[in-house]
């Protein structure tokens, strides 16, 4: 019995390590980045598009806009495709086939992001350059590549949400003479709403945080984009591109970029988690 208590105490200590990790990460990122934000001034840091580390100008507005533009584009594409797939796999696809397609989507999540970026460069970018104009490396290219990359996240969480809807709802609706599609969009999607919202927000977090693929296809120009065919630089690519040679204040500024990214993603995740929990609660209520 004494041994059992010892094991319990040990396991509890280990269980705290995830939390400890999170806390250390937060502390170190903020400690490195926050001082520069205050020295530069909130206004000059967030609302200026002047990023000239050599001259001491650290305005990240163009990257914030770049990140948002790319993320929105990615969600339009990845959200639509991902939700569509989740609906097909849960409502319209024979279960045998679905059990084959699901691992395939997981495979999509396993492909390294650099491979996605590379494929974007060799296939998508030339198409955009030749048929739509501009340099090809653009918001559009990054949106499409990211859209495909976040698709597995959106799909798998939406599938869980749709599966959590009690089967009896579905049967009740079909028994009242609704077609499968009417049942899907009038009942299932509404019942699974908070889970689907969580899926979309978590997908946005993924898109916002993705780095290597975006560097390869977005063009990385330090300007506020005027159209979807213009190149942009995101918060993440700014860090990865300049970290290799940055020092002193410049490096602090990159950590400050990290702080911004970290804060936005934490807000996203907290919202998504509260939505996800709501679904669980609803599911248990049945």
């Amino acid at each position: 019995m004494r041994k059992d208590k010892l094991v319990a105490a040990l396991l509890q200590a280990i269980a705290l390590s995830a939390l400890a990790g999170l806390m250390i990460i937060t502390v170190f990122i903020f400690k490195e980045g926050l001082p520069l934000i205050f020295r530069t001034g909130l206004k000059d840091f967030f609302f200026s598009a002047d990023w000239e580390p050599g001259k001491g100008n650290f305005g990240i507005m163009s990257m914030i806009i770049g990140s948002l533009a790319v993320t929105l584009g990615a969600m339009l594409i990845g959200g639509t495709l991902g939700l569509g797939m989740a609906i097909v796999l849960t409502q319209f696809c024979p279960p045998k086939l679905a059990s084959l397609i699901k691992p395939t989507i997981e495979l999509l999540a396993g492909i390294p992001s650099v491979v996605y970026g590379f494929m974007g460069v060799v296939t998508l970018v030339p198409i955009i350059r030749n048929y739509l104009g501009g340099p090809g490396l653009s918001v559009l290219a990054a949106s499409i590549v990211l859209g495909i990359m976040v698709l597995p996240t959106v799909t798998s969480i939406s599938i869980d949400a749709l599966k959590a809807v009690p089967r009896s709802y579905w049967e009740g609706s079909v028994a009242l003479g609704a077609t499968r599609w009417q049942t899907t969009h009038m009942l299932m999607l509404k019942a699974a709403r908070s889970g689907i919202v969580a899926a979309i927000i978590l997908g946005m977090g993924r898109a916002l945080g993705e780095t290597m693929a975006v560097i390869m296809v977005a063009g990385n120009a330090l300007e506020v984009p005027g159209s979807v065919l213009d190149p942009v630089r995101t918060l993440t690519s700014n860090i990865a591109l300049e970290m290799g040679y940055a020092s002193g204040e410049h490096r602090e500024a990159l950590f400050a970029t990290g702080v911004t990214l970290f804060a936005v993603i934490m807000i996203f995740n907290t919202i998504a988690l509260s939505f996800a929990r709501r679904t669980i609660r609803q599911g248990r209520g049945q």
């Binding site: 995830a18 990122i29 945080g209 780095t211 990290g258 934490m266």
Partner: peptide, 25 residues
Amino acid sequence: FIVRFGADCLAGIPSIIYGLFGFVF
């Protein structure tokens, strides 16, 4: 609840932030 919240937050942090953290820490 707290442990799961910590794990969920860790899961959402982008890899570039992990990179920055690993570098300074």
